[in-house]
């Protein structure tokens, strides 16, 4: 690919030119770079150090080498449980949420009357987010006397307490997360808006049916946004905390023990920040592997208007 931004018109040697490009690039990313160097990297290294120590938050950390990591992999069933719950959660909720978000975004990508109101309506659950109110609402909705059971009883399904049943608690939380699909929906919407309408018009002239249009135009044109949503939802899926913490506290019997909840419990409940830091770094590595995998696969399905303009 050709040099994208030529900083200098005159040829003063390639090296010099590259140096100038570097400067311009760094100038643009300077805000982030400064923040990273000033505020992010230090605390990250500190937490890496804590992961090799016995640190109870309130007294000085003491070095124990790999102790935390060994404990985690040899003698901690709750770590395994947390990992299992989180993986199930990510694998089920992320595709569901994205599919739903894309579907709704496409419904709303029209100039029909009232879409503005609809968009707002469907975004509301995401505004409720992680407030104390939502925990109460959700418990009420899926509780034994809740609205969901009222609806199901019409079909003769017996009432159970969905939020706290060992069999259904995780599914209920997944449903909650999928229901808050507002943010990927908005991003899809913004992406859909960027697709030139002429493409569809041309396709319609060629007699392509809506399915064809979806697979031949929408999906490829949207691939960079799908990619973004996939990466971010996966990372955020691994970090999911609020829903479980506010509604089930990881229970019953650790059936909804998300990794971040376990980590939090260790750090601030049991005063074992050393162990929590080790947990965090293991999560980082797991998360990085998944993300790297998505990034690697991107070459084959993500299409950029700017770079793949073939």
């Amino acid at each position: 690919m050709a040099e994208q931004v030529q900083v200098s018109g005159q040829s003063k040697g390639k090296l010099h030119k590259q140096w100038k490009t570097d400067l311009v690039g760094l100038a643009f990313i300077a805000p982030w770079l400064i923040g990273f160097l000033c505020f992010i990297i230090g605390p990250m290294i500190a937490s890496l150090y804590f992961s090799f120590t016995n640190y109870d938050l309130l007294t000085e950390p003491t070095w124990i080498g790999l102790g935390n990591y060994i404990q985690m992999f040899t003698n901690d069933v709750r770590f395994i449980q947390a990992l299992k719950v989180t993986l199930i959660f990510v694998f089920v909720s992320v595709p569901l949420k994205l599919a739903f978000a894309l579907f709704v975004a496409m419904l709303f990508n029209t100039k029909r009357k009232g879409v503005g109101i609809y968009r707002t309506l469907y975004y509301i659950p995401s505004i409720l987010g992680g407030s104390v109110a939502i925990a109460v609402v959700w418990k009420q909705l899926f509780g034994r006397d809740g609205a969901i059971n009222d609806i199901l009883s019409v079909f003769g399904i017996p009432s159970i307490s969905w939020v706290t049943s060992p069999d259904f608690a995780l599914s209920t939380l997944i449903l909650l997360v999928v229901w808050q699909f507002g943010s990927p929906m908005l991003i899809f919407l913004a992406g859909l808006k960027a697709i030139p309408t002429e493409l569809y018009e041309a396709a319609a002239v060629d007699g392509a049916n809506p399915f064809h249009q979806f697979f031949k135009i929408t999906l490829p044109m949207l691939s960079s946004v799908i990619f973004f949503n996939l990466v971010m939802q996966t990372i955020q899926g691994f970090m999911t905390f609020t829903q479980s913490f506010l509604i089930t506290q990881g229970g019953p019997m650790d059936k909804t023990l998300f990794y971040a909840v376990y980590l939090y419990e260790k750090a601030f409940g049991h005063f074992d920040m050393g162990y929590a830091s080790a947990l965090a770094w293991v999560l980082l590595i797991i998360c990085a592997i998944f993300t790297a995998f998505i990034f690697r696969s991107a070459g084959s399905w993500v299409h950029y208007e700017s770079e793949g303009g073939k």
Binding site: V136, K139, G143, R144, S159, S161, T164, G251, P252
Partner: peptide, 19 residues
Amino acid sequence: PPDVFMAAGASIEQSPIVN
């Protein structure tokens, strides 16, 4: 049965006795 009381968690207001 646990179905009746587990949902309350630590919340006193949501305990089944209230209802």
